[in-house]
Amino acid sequence: MNTNRHNLAQKTGPNGRPLERRGVDAPLPDPELHRPTWPLKQVWGGLLTFYLVALALNAASLHRNNEHMPYGPVRSFWVAVSAPLARVTTAVGLDRPRATLTRTIGDALNR
């Protein structure tokens, strides 16, 4: 599909050996190459951890966003779900990393 790979492959150095392709000239992913993979069980574990930690670190912010939704049953549902999560994570202090980052960099960047 990518003919550029072939063009790059044709280029050789003064000694006749193919030039090393680095940085912006690096080749595209080659499906034939062996890639680092995980078995499914490990992916399940990784993804579950990802969701749980992401939820814990962002529950307070998520709750604030839910409160800004238009009034109606959808808002009521999501607020009811996120409120206890936000209370727990705020009590434990898990909301602080995001709040600190937002206050110190995010707000200044998006002003």
Binding site: P36, G45, L47, F50, L57, R98, G106
Partner: peptide, 30 residues
């Protein structure tokens, strides 16, 4: 770097990913 990431335990990579996501969300606008 992908090879290096792959040697991490699943929980560590998942947690690190969540931390990076939190940084991205904090830096982005509403």
């Amino acid at each position: 770097h992908l090879h290096r990431l792959n040697s991490l335990p699943a929980w560590a990579l998942g947690a690190a990913g969540a931390a990076v996501l939190t940084i991205i969300l904090a830096l982005g606008p509403e």
